[in-house]
C-alpha cells in the first residue's frame, strides 16, 4: 500500500502547511524540502504528496496558481490561504502540547 497511514497523512499535511508558510512553492520543490526536513522518517513516495495537496486545496487551506519558475517553466505554485495560516497556528500549538505531553510520558525523567 502506497497510501500513508492516517498519522503520517496528518503529519504530512502539517509539514506541507509549515513549508508553505515559509514560502509559496511548487510540488517538486516541496517534495525536495520535505525530504530534507524529515530525512527518511517519512517513508512515502514523492507521488503521495499530490493527493495531500489536492485535499488541502479542496478544503480551502491552500490555494494554487500557475507561475513561471526561475528557469522559465510553467509550474503550479501553492501558497497558504489566510484560513490555512490560522489552521497552521492552531495545529502547531496542538502539536506542541501533544508532543510535550507524550515526551513527558515517555521520558518523564527529562
Amino acid at each position: 500500500m502506497s497510501k500513508p497511514s492516517d498519522l503520517v497523512q496528518g503529519t504530512l499535511a502539517l509539514l506541507i502547511l509549515k513549508s508553505l508558510a515559509l514560502q509559496p512553492t511548487h510540488g517538486w520543490a516541496l517534495s525536495q524540502r520535505l525530504r530534507q526536513i524529515s530525512g527518511d522518517v517519512l517513508q512515502v513516495s514523492d507521488g503521495s504528496l499530490y493527493p495531500s495537496l489536492a485535499k488541502l486545496e479542496q478544503d480551502g487551506w491552500i490555494e494554487s496558481d500557475w507561475q513561471m519558475t526561475e528557469n522559465n517553466r510553467r509550474a503550479k505554485f501553492y501558497s497558504l490561504t489566510p484560513p490555512g495560516r490560522e489552521a497552521l497556528d492552531r495545529e502547531t500549538k496542538n502539536w506542541e502540547r501533544l508532543s510535550s505531553a507524550i515526551t513527558n510520558i515517555v521520558r518523564p525523567e527529562v
Binding site: G27, Y50, A54, Q58, D59, G60, E63, A75, K76, T81
Partner: peptide
C-alpha cells in the same frame, strides 16, 4: 474558507477536463 472552497469545487465539477489536464501537467513537471 468558503471563499476558497466554492470556486474551486465548482471548477472541479464543471471543468473536469481542465482539472484533469492540470493534474497531468503538474505530475509531468
Amino acid at each position: 474558507r468558503l471563499l476558497y472552497i466554492l470556486p474551486l469545487r465548482l471548477r472541479t465539477l464543471f471543468q473536469r477536463n481542465r482539472t484533469e489536464t492540470e493534474m497531468h501537467d503538474e505530475l509531468a513537471f
